[in-house]
Write a protein that binds this DNA or RNA. Structure first.
Lengths: 177, 177
DNA sequence: TTTTCCATGTAACTCGTTACATGATTTC
DNA sequence: GAAATCATGTAACGAGTTACATGGAAAA
């Protein structure tokens, strides 16, 4: 549903065609989400069928015609519903990386430390990139800020985990192989 | 891949049948992941075909026979690969809830505050539940800890966001409707 | 005796992805 | 003339879900 909210929200500001929407999302909203081309075209078709948006063709010369989408009244109502639902509910987060941690005692502690240091490096790079992101207009800077806060928290936690495996590494005889 | 790692990791400790695996994951690992029954049976079939695990039937009386799975040598190797990959890479997290935030200026600030307070409530409840979780054995307590750290970070950030919309609410004339 | 638990699965569907196809137009 | 960009899509696949089907055993 989040992607539908995204498309409706963008079309609410100004009419756009599919290529344009995909381009904008992949370029300017990449930190926060993504939307592949086939998905964009598929969702736009679907929402047209449901009456949330309307199409009209625009052709410039011999180029492939653009299908420009416009938010309808029903679409505006749907946008309001989705937005309120999105704001009122926390998005559930699952950390796939935790599954490896469950089985970390299958490896020697020193190995775990080496692997987690790699993870730490990638995380730190993401954080640096987020901090280097240019100042954004309107409410979008909240998203960047969220990302920074989250990555800082992840880094801090990871450091405590690494420290513990480091301690275990200097007290050998802990792993199961 | 994470679910395959999970199944291989559990089968590495002891042989189990599908029902048992599903049960264990949904009951004891619910904070960290989930695995529906059809998915479990499907993955077990797939991994059997790939030679990572082997089956043997066990029948008790007239009950439906159990298909007990056992990790093979190839499965152990695959487990090692998946585990190292999992530990060395940070899991990318996308916050669906951020998309609503991008469009928060479509609503009156006071409305946004009310909706985010709801989100805050649900988040606080999750945190309380995580804190109330019983002490866990081995490396699993890391997962609980991770969840607590993350939820605390989310709550703190959400509070700053709410504060800002609250400030905007007392300075009216900010929204676009 | 009816419900719950044990134990297996299938079928249909949703959501999203990758890879591919088409063809004009601008840029190098 | 070749390559990148604009603009649309289709087809095949992957991962996962819900709902449904089956049938015996234990518990209420």
């Amino acid at each position: 549903m989040d992607r539908e909210l995204l498309l409706l929200g963008l079309l609410r500001r100004t009419d756009m065609h599919g290529y344009q929407l995909h381009e904008f999302i992949e370029r300017d909203l990449a930190t926060c989400t993504d939307l592949k081309k086939p998905t964009a075209y598929f969702l736009l078709d679907k929402m047209t069928k449901r009456g949330w948006i309307t199409q009209h063709e625009e052709r410039a010369g011999n180029r492939p015609p653009r299908r420009v989408y416009h938010l309808s009244d029903a679409g505006e109502a749907q946008f309001q519903r989705l937005l309120r639902e999105n704001l009122s509910q926390p998005s559930l987060t699952r950390f796939g990386g935790d599954i490896g941690l469950i089985f970390a005692d299958s490896l020697a502690a020193a190995d775990v430390v080496a692997l987690l240091e790699q993870r730490r490096g990638a995380l730190a790079a993401e954080l640096a990139a987020a901090r280097a992101a240019p100042a954004h207009a309107g409410t979008f800077h909240l998203v960047i800020e969220h990302r920074i806060v989250h990555l800082e928290s992840e880094l801090g936690w990871l450091d405590t985990v690494i420290a513990r495996f480091n301690a275990a590494a200097s007290t050998p005889g802990e792993h199961h192989d």
